[in-house]
Simulated assay, not measured.
Amino acid sequence: MPASSDAAYPAPDPIVAATRNRRGAKLSLVAPMHNETEVLDAFFGRIGRTIEDLGVEAEVICIDDGSRDDTLARLLDWARRDPRIKVIGLARNFGKEAAMTAGIDAATGDMVVPIDADLQDPPELIEEFVRLWERGFDVVYGVRVDRSSDSFVKRFTANAFYKVFNRVSDLSIPMSAGDFRLMDRRVVEALKTLPERNRFMKGLFAWVGFSQVGVPYVRPPRAAGNTSFGYLKLLRFALDGITSFSTVPLRVWSVLGLSAAVLAFFAAVGLVIRVMVVGREVPGYASLMVVILLGFAVQMLAFGVLGEYVGRLYQEVKGRPIYIVSRRAGFED
C-alpha cells in the first residue's frame, strides 16, 4: 500500500482541489470480465467493503466479454440482488480494450475506475485514489512496484515493452502502470471523443493528458482462475500499442532502404573499378546467394511492418463499432 503522506506526491491544481469532495460524488467501477466465474464472489465481497468504507454513492459496471462459462448468468444474478451492480453483455469476445470502452461509455460517475476482476488490482487502493482526486488530480493510476506474482517471462516482456514504447513513441506511458486508475469525469468525456477501433487504452489514458499522479502498490496473485491473456495475445497487444502511437517502425525501413541504396552505389563503383584494373572475374555462387536471400528476407520484413499499418488503417476505414451489446441489466431505461 502507498504512503499516506502528501509529501510523496507532486502538488495538484489548488483551484481544482478546492471544488472536490467525495460527499455527494458518485464512483463508477468498470470491470471487464472474460471467464471469471471462479472469482466473482471474492470480487464483489471486497468491492462491497471498499464502497462502504469510502462512503460514496457507487455503481459497479461489469462487462461480460463473450465468456464461455457461466460468468454472464452469475453477473445477472448478482445484479438482481444488488442494485449497485450493472451488467453489460457483449455479443461476442471483442477483447479487453473494447470491453473496457463499453464500460467507460456507460459509466455515469464523477470518478471512474477501471479494475480487473481477478483482484490483482487491490480494491482497497481506491481509497488513496479518491483522496488524491480530492486534492485536485484528474488521473490517479496504480504503479506495480512488485510483480513477483507474475512469471519471469511476463515481467521481462512487460518491462521490455514499456521501454520500447517510450523510446519509439512521442507519447510516454509510466513504467509498470496498468489500466487500474481513477479518472475524473472530464477525463472520461475526453476519452469518449476518441473514435479509433484499434484501442490501446494505456496510450489513450496518457494521450488525453490532464494532471496525473502514480500510486505504488504490490501486485498480488490472482484470487482464482487463470488469465485469458496468453503470450500471443500479449504480442498482438504490444504491436497494437506501438503501431497506434508511433510511425518509427516505418521510418526505420526508410532509413535502411536509403542506407542500402548508398552501399549498393559504392559497391557498384568498386566493381567497375575492379574490372577495369584487374579484369573480369567469375563471381562466387555462395556470396551471390547470401546477398539474394538476405535482400529477400529484409524486403519481406519491411512488407510485414507496412502490412501492420495498412491492416490497422483498413480496420479504421471500415468504421465498424468498437463493440456490440447483446444484453444490459441494472440500467435505468
Rank of each mutant, 00 (worst) to 15 (best):
S172H: 14
F210P: 03
R147D: 01
S172R: 15
N166D: 11
Y162S: 12
G203K: 05
S176C: 10
R197W: 09
W133F: 06
V145G: 05
V143R: 14
F161N: 13
D138G: 08
F156C: 04
M175Y: 12
V218H: 05
L182P: 07
R155G: 02
L125K: 00
V140E: 02
G214V: 00
M175I: 09
V215Y: 09
E128S: 11
Y162K: 04
R185C: 05
R144G: 06
D116G: 10
W133A: 02
D179S: 14
E127W: 05
F200P: 11
R181L: 15
Y217P: 09
A177M: 10
M183Q: 09
V208E: 06
S211V: 01
R199Y: 14
V140S: 03
V130Y: 00
D121T: 01
V188M: 07
A117S: 13
D138A: 14
P174K: 00
V215K: 00
V215E: 11
D184P: 10
A177L: 02
Q212V: 04
R185K: 15
R199L: 15
R155A: 04
M175T: 12
F210M: 03
S211C: 03
L132N: 04
R186V: 08
F161D: 11
L132M: 09
V143S: 14
P195F: 06
F137E: 00
D179P: 07
V208H: 04
V130M: 06
V188I: 12
R186E: 13
V213W: 06
R131K: 13
K163G: 08
V208R: 08
P221W: 07
S151K: 00
W207V: 02
N198W: 06
L119V: 11
R199M: 08
D118K: 03
L204C: 01
R197H: 12
R131G: 05
R222G: 03
V130I: 12
F200G: 03
F129N: 00
D150Y: 15
E196C: 08
L171M: 09
V218L: 03
F180K: 02
L171R: 09
D184Q: 04
D170S: 13
E196V: 11
I173V: 14
R135W: 13
D150R: 15
V164K: 05
R131S: 15
Y141C: 05
D146Q: 04
D170E: 12
G178C: 07
N198Q: 12
V218E: 07
L194H: 10
K192T: 07
F180I: 01
Y162P: 10
E189T: 05
